[in-house]
Computed example of a mutant assay.
Amino acid sequence: MSTHSITTQKVNFRVFRFNAGDDYLPYYENYTMEVTSEEVVLDILNRIKWDFDGSFSYRRSCRHGICGACAIKVNGRSTLACKESMTTMIDWFGTDLTLEPLSIKRAVKDLIIDKGDFWKKHDAIHPYLISHIDEHPEMECAVTPEQADELNDADLCIQCGACHYACPVVEVNEDFFGPAAFAKAYRFEADVRDDAHITRLEELHEEKQGLWDCVKCFECAEVCPKEVNPIDKITKLHQMLFKEGVATSNVATRHAVGFKHSIAKHGVLDEGGLVLYSEGPAIIKHIPVALKMFRKGKIVMPWAIPKSDNLDEIQQLIKSSSTVKF
């Protein structure tokens, strides 16, 4: 017999409300209720609809963390409502919780959003296997366990959109593919059966929409309910761009290479030298900021950059891990 005891806490929920057909501006309504330690966020959404306001709208389907339909934000954090325990939410944020859609500017009805931009970018990276195969093969196309492992769990993505709408670049750059699309792209780039390897990489290399506009904030890894870790896939795609010879010389690629050169030379990062290497003569536009950084000790003169005590070891690590010249 289970000895687990059910506990309750009084929680106030500040809930985003909006109907694009009737409301000019969104507003928030407060609902206070006793929450048990057995409930998840989706249970709260159901109770608000069933016990307080039948017009309250949100998406839900499988309740098993598979379909991704119920993704919302709790206190600004993207989360899968059917997966997150209320006990965890209270531990993190306290007993005053704000429930909002993944993207307020895309809200259609309460917590329901228009995910058109998400699916457009998802489709843009050709999220399917492209292979020239015999229509009547004599044997199956076998993939070894080692080759399957190269997918690195990218195939676990459920397209919930949690990472996409948590990404700060998506919020300000409507052309940026976003972390979910990149994770899906990696899933097929890593598949040995795919024949569109270079074509897909060339599209991912494009400025403004592609990989180089990622700001490495790791928010996508933080919120992913399936632990796909999109930033890890983005890093691997960066490496593929260099390995396959797709990367061309631009500010972003020079920044990556300059980072490596700086660490190899000093064992620490020369931030001023990195900007100069990346942008060349265009560095003049950064002079006002550079002066402020210099006064704060953020950057130093080239001859004053300290050398790491472990420089030899660092250089050996860089040499052993560098497989591509650029």
Rank of each mutant, 00 (worst) to 15 (best):
Glu140Tyr: 13
Glu203Met: 11
Asn46His: 13
Ser61Asp: 04
Leu241Met: 07
Lys208Ser: 06
Thr36Val: 04
Val11Gln: 04
Val170Thr: 14
Lys120Glu: 15
Glu34Trp: 08
Pro127Val: 03
Asp22Val: 13
Glu227Tyr: 11
Val35Asp: 00
Asn173Leu: 07
Ala290Gly: 15
Lys120Ile: 10
Lys307Arg: 14
Leu317Gln: 14
Val246Glu: 01
Glu39Thr: 02
Leu201Cys: 08
Pro101Ser: 05
Ile263Thr: 08
Arg14Ile: 13
Phe259Glu: 06
Leu317Asn: 08
Asp191Gln: 04
Thr95Glu: 11
Gly116Met: 00
Ala221Trp: 08
Val35Gly: 02
Asn152Asp: 15
Asp110Tyr: 03
Glu34Tyr: 02
His136Thr: 10
Asp23Tyr: 02
Val74Gly: 04
Thr323Cys: 12
Ile44Arg: 06
Phe188Arg: 00
Thr7Asp: 01
Glu219Lys: 13
Phe242Gln: 05
Glu279Val: 11
Gly297Trp: 07
Asp191Ala: 03
His205Asp: 13
Gly161Asn: 11
Asp43Leu: 06
Met1Gly: 15
Tyr31Met: 01
Asn152His: 10
Gly76Phe: 08
Ser320Ile: 02
Gly273Ile: 05
Asp194Val: 04
Gly161Trp: 08
Ile314Trp: 07
Cys157Trp: 00
Thr95Pro: 06
Ile234Gly: 00
Gly297Lys: 02
Leu274Trp: 04
Gly161Thr: 06
Lys307His: 14
Phe16His: 13
Thr79His: 00
Val324Ile: 06
Arg59Phe: 01
Glu271His: 04
Leu276Pro: 00
Ala183Asn: 12
Asn173Pro: 04
Ala190Ser: 15
Lys296Ile: 01
Asp96Val: 06
Ile314Asn: 10
Asp91Val: 01
Gln147Arg: 10
Thr87Glu: 13
His126Trp: 13
Glu206Cys: 09
Met139Thr: 09
Lys49Gly: 04
Glu222Cys: 05
Tyr27Asp: 15
Val170Leu: 05
Lys243Val: 05
Glu150Gln: 12
His136Tyr: 08
Ser37Arg: 05
Tyr165Cys: 05
Phe13Leu: 12
Leu204Ala: 07
Ile158Ala: 06
Gly76Leu: 10
Val41Ala: 12
Gly116Arg: 05
Gln315Cys: 09
Ala181Met: 07
Lys325Arg: 06
Ala166His: 06
Asp134Lys: 11
Leu237Gln: 11
Leu129Pro: 07
Lys109Leu: 13
Ala166Thr: 02
Asp194Leu: 00
Lys265Glu: 15
Ile299Cys: 10
Glu227Arg: 11
Leu211Gln: 07
Asp96Cys: 05
Leu45Phe: 15
Asp110Trp: 01
Glu244Ile: 01
Phe118Thr: 04
Cys67Asp: 04
Leu241Pro: 05
Glu34Cys: 01
Glu271Met: 10
Ala69Trp: 01
Asn12Cys: 10
Ile198Val: 15
Asp23Met: 03
His197Ala: 03
Thr36His: 08
Val228Thr: 10
Val246Asp: 03
Gly210Cys: 02
Pro168Gly: 02
Ala190Gln: 11
Arg106Asp: 15
Ser308His: 06
Ala107Asp: 12
Phe294His: 11
Phe242Tyr: 09
Asp195Tyr: 14
Ala71Met: 06
Ala196Thr: 06
Leu129Lys: 03
Val192Tyr: 02
Met301Cys: 08
Ala69Ser: 15
Lys307Ile: 13
Leu42Met: 12
Ile287Met: 14
Ala107Val: 02
Arg60Ala: 11
Ile113His: 03
Gln315Arg: 14
